Computed example of a mutant assay.
Amino acid sequence: MQTELIEDVLYDQAQMLGGSRLGDDELIRLAREEFEGQPFCIVRNWMLIDLMLSGKQENEIRKQGLQPSVLFANHAVFDSEERIARGNGFITGYQKDFHGCFFASQDKLYILAGRGARKHPSLPAVTKLRELFPVS
Results as ranks from 00 to 15, higher is better:
Leu10Val: 04
Leu5Gly: 00
Gln64Glu: 15
Gly55Cys: 08
Lys96Arg: 15
Glu60His: 13
Asn88Leu: 09
Gln106Gly: 03
Val43Asp: 08
Gln13Ile: 09
Trp46Asp: 08
Ser136Cys: 10
Glu34Gln: 14
Pro68Gly: 07
Leu71Met: 09
Glu26Trp: 07
Phe90Tyr: 09
Gln95Pro: 01
Ala73Glu: 01
Val135Pro: 00
His75Phe: 14
Phe102Tyr: 14
Leu123Phe: 14
Val77Thr: 05
Gly87Met: 00
Val9Ser: 01
Gln95Val: 02
Ser136Gln: 11
Ala14Asn: 07
Leu129Asp: 03
Arg86Ala: 10
Ala76Pro: 00
Glu82Gly: 00
Thr3Lys: 10
Ile49Val: 15
Leu71Cys: 06
Lys96Ile: 01
Gly116Leu: 04
Tyr11His: 12
Phe72Ile: 05
Ile84Glu: 05
Pro134Leu: 04
Arg62Gln: 13
Ile84Cys: 09
Leu17Arg: 15
Ala31Arg: 07
Leu112Cys: 05
Asp97Ile: 10
Val70Pro: 04
Gly23Leu: 14
Lys108Gly: 01
Ile42Asn: 00
Asp8Val: 02
Ile6Val: 15
Arg118Asn: 01
Glu60Gly: 08
Ser80Glu: 00
Lys119Thr: 14
His99Gln: 12
Asp25Asn: 14
Pro121Ala: 04
Ile111Ala: 06
Val126Lys: 07
Ala85Trp: 04
Gly100Ile: 01
Ile91Cys: 14
Asp24Met: 11
Leu132Pro: 02
Gln38Phe: 04
Arg29Asp: 12
Phe78Thr: 06
Gln95Asp: 01
Val77Trp: 09
Ala117Gln: 13
Ala73Pro: 06
Arg32Pro: 04
Arg130Phe: 02
Glu36Gly: 00
Ile61Arg: 10
Ala85Phe: 00
Pro39Phe: 06
Thr92Tyr: 00
Gln57Ala: 15
Gly116Asp: 08
Gln67Ile: 10
Ala73Trp: 03
Gln67Glu: 15
Ala76Ser: 15
Gln15Trp: 10
Phe133Glu: 06
Ile84Val: 15
Ala73Arg: 03
Thr127Gln: 12
Phe35Ile: 01
Glu4Asp: 11
Gln2Met: 08
